[in-house]
Design a protein around this nucleic acid. Structure first.
Length: 205
DNA sequence: AAGTCTCC
DNA sequence: AGAT
């Protein structure tokens, strides 16, 4: 897939490519994700302290991200025991478009936000090589994304992410705290039934 | 604390 | 924004 990169919006070192993915490519990704969720159904991860996350998730690739009473980690199997399905080619195209120099991703974490789902501020730090970026793809309803600092506390800034936006968290921005404060229902027609899917592609090892 | 709550 |  060939994409024309315009200058991204920069926010605390994050690069946000607004509207990078055309509608037809978004639809292709959603269709491919149906195969992913058939093989690896969405689940509600349990936090280590006993409360389930409001976001439902699954993964594709060699590794998937899981959370339970034992903590956060990458696993080569879904909680039900099966290996994760491969990362769809249409989704890998987004990675190569914005991170052509990086290693290929080993995990595509699929986060589904229904109206009301949120994700608190956190770091992506379960990977072995922080020199490799994390690439995020937004599909469906708009989401209010918040970014903070490399340590907890301090000021934060927010930006609305829309369907087709692609964000790169790399370099100095790789370990910034970030999260999703809210979803704006009815702002996209991409997903029947509404909601938002966020894909985060990562190198794990 | 990838949640939740409280306080400003 | 900060405690936990």
């Amino acid at each position: 897939m060939v994409m024309q990169l315009s200058a991204p919006l920069e926010l605390r070192g994050l690069s946000i490519y607004k509207g990078l993915i055309p509608r037809d490519a978004q639809e292709e990704m959603v269709e491919a994700l149906r195969d992913v969720t058939r093989a690896a159904p969405l689940f509600s991860p349990m936090t280590p302290y006993g409360k389930p996350m409001s976001v439902r998730m699954t993964s594709a690739g060699r590794f998937g991200w899981v959370s339970d009473r034992r903590g956060y980690r990458y696993s080569e199997t879904h909680p039900e025991g099966q290996p994760w399905p491969p990362i769809p080619a249409s989704i890998l195209g987004a990675w190569t478009a914005v991170a052509p120099e990086a290693r290929m991703p080993e995990c595509c974490l699929v986060n589904f936000y229904a109206a009301g789902a949120r994700m608190g501020l956190h770091q992506d730090r379960d990977e072995a090589d922080f020199s490799q970026p994390v690439v995020s793809v937004s599909l469906g309803d708009d989401a209010l994304y918040r970014v903070g600092n490399k340590t907890r506390g301090g000021s934060t800034e927010s930006v609305w992410l829309s369907s087709g936006d692609v964000m790169v968290m790399g370099g100095e921005a790789r370990l910034l705290y970030h999260g999703i404060d809210r979803i704006k229902p009815g702002t996209s027609t991409l997903l029947r039934g509404g909601g938002r899917i966020n894909l985060t592609l990562r190198v794990v090892t």
